[in-house]
Design a binder for these strands. Structure first.
Lengths: 287, 287
DNA sequence: CTGTTGTATTTATTAGTATAAATATAATGA
DNA sequence: TCATTATATTTATACTAATAAATACAACAG
């Protein structure tokens, strides 16, 4: 009815604005960008609701599918969640680290990244992070860390060494969660997640290095001790040693990572599922 | 015809696989995950083609819209690009840093991040990066850096100080591009991009501090000098000083960032466009 | 008051159709 | 022979309509 010219206006405005080089922006992208701008300008947050699909349809003069695609973009970016039913629809969601983490893994999947490079960063960032939480750790935090150490020490016998590594990394995640610098926290958590998934994937990862486990536990013990007396310098020193030690124990298995980066977190449990695409008669063709 | 049971099979398999807590995964997500798995397992890259929409429709026994949504997800994640025409369709694309960068900004938009925290990381990472490219810089790289310095020195007079900052950051981008560690390179480029957009947004950003510009130019000059003689320690020292100096000159405007994080890069030029959503009679409601 | 059932609302998915864009190929002209 | 133009084909893009699924809320029975 009256919405057709509206659609025309939008697409024309932007197609002239982006002068030459790139492709014509798709309608759904324009809409999602517009909504994003709206979120930013109105500074919406957690729980605020977008108009429902029908309203957006007539607002932008687009069809349902187009609006859905726009919303899908925002959903993939973690900015909204879509629910069905009344009180459903698109609600603003302040994204956690997962979307960013997932994208970073997508990026790294096609790069060559080895364990040495991971530890090049970990040696810097974990130390900085460790120092940055001195004085900000609550008693609850410390207790969680101690609980983690207890779990580590308890099942340290003939149990699965992979579980040890899990707990070891969980300790560092606790630290990261307490970090006041969100960027630093993100980077450390990302590195920990990568190492954790590496432990999952490489099932051969059971090199019976008990001494390594014991050393880690000792480092953690010393760290908590230093945290309790809020000795920043000591924390730095211990963590630096801890990371250097971990790097030196880095197995050859960790040397090549970034191969299975795409299959992250949630997808790991279905890793062995056959892809439907395998049944294709002839699909790919590389010139 | 025969594809209806296929669809049923997929949804049933996974709905039982994810036991309790989360919502039923949507069909489009399952498909996109499956394609992702396919990409990883077959280790496809750059230019390999996915089957066209029709083929995917009958392969997964889903409707066009669903397949389109699945492809949309992969497109947002930067893993494929969709083109029309013959030889068009979905082609694998190894994503650059942009998608990850965008998501990270989405995340940070809702956190509180200030300039101090940015420099907490920059002081570590830029130094490490600077040192890591010693010996790997090509003559071309060095010439580009010198060209950048020349541009910096030339327009240094009464010109726009914002342009100075642009060039200054461009110098660091050159370094980042040469870094062999993709993660370190990403993080440094991300920090630079954030600072760059900050310069764009804050139009009031013209504090006539010529001394700062001159100091930066001198640091850069010294860096290139040290790079030419491949003096790793000297590079570290200069960059550390450079960053400390930059932090000390950090303006109050940079203190609060992370407010306009959502409106990144490409969207900045349309920043003042009115959002269509503003015309809404009554949309949002926060309980 | 409590638990169940029904109903309304909203998204999710499907189906079909039509349009526009991009490319390859054939036809045409020089 | 070569370049240019026209045409046809392939493909995504967009729209319309209709059904299915899920949830909140109200009505109802115990």
């Amino acid at each position: 009815m009256t919405q057709a010219p509206v659609s025309k206006t939008v697409s024309k405005t932007v197609s002239t604005a982006s002068p030459a080089v790139k492709r014509r922006p798709k309608l759904a992208e324009l809409i999602s960008d517009d909504i994003k701008r709206w979120i930013a300008v109105e500074s919406l947050g957690q729980g605020d609701r977008l108009p429902n699909e029908k309203a957006l349809m007539e607002l932008y003069g687009s069809a349902k599918g187009t609006v859905r695609e726009a919303l899908k973009i925002l959903e993939v970016e973690g900015l909204i969640t879509l629910k069905t039913g009344p009180k459903g629809g698109a609600v603003i969601n302040q994204p956690g680290m997962e979307p960013a983490s997932r994208m970073l893994r997508n990026f790294l999947h096609f790069q060559q990244l080895d364990g040495k490079q991971v530890y090049q960063l970990r040696k810097l960032l974990e130390v900085e992070l460790a120092a940055s939480v001195v004085g900000t750790l609550t008693e609850t935090d410390l207790q969680q860390m101690e609980a983690n150490m207890a779990a580590c020490a308890c099942c340290g016998g003939e149990e699965d060494h992979r579980h040890q590594r899990f707990l070891e990394l969980e300790f560092h995640q606790l630290l990261a969660k307490a970090c006041p610098n969100p960027l630093l926290a993100f980077m450390c958590q990302f590195l920990n997640d990568m190492l954790r998934d590496l432990v999952v994937i490489k099932k051969a990862y059971v090199p019976e290095r008990k001494q390594f486990d014991y050393a880690n536990q000792d480092y953690h013990r010393q760290l908590v001790e230093a945290y309790r007396m809020e000795d920043s310098l000591r924390v730095r020193h211990i963590m630096a040693e801890h990371m250097a030690d971990a790097e030196s124990h880095m197995s050859a298995l960790e040397a090549e990572m970034a191969a299975q980066m795409l299959i992250s977190g949630d997808l790991l449990h279905t890793y062995h599922h056959r892809s439907k695409l395998h049944d294709l008669p002839s699909a790919n063709a590389a010139p």
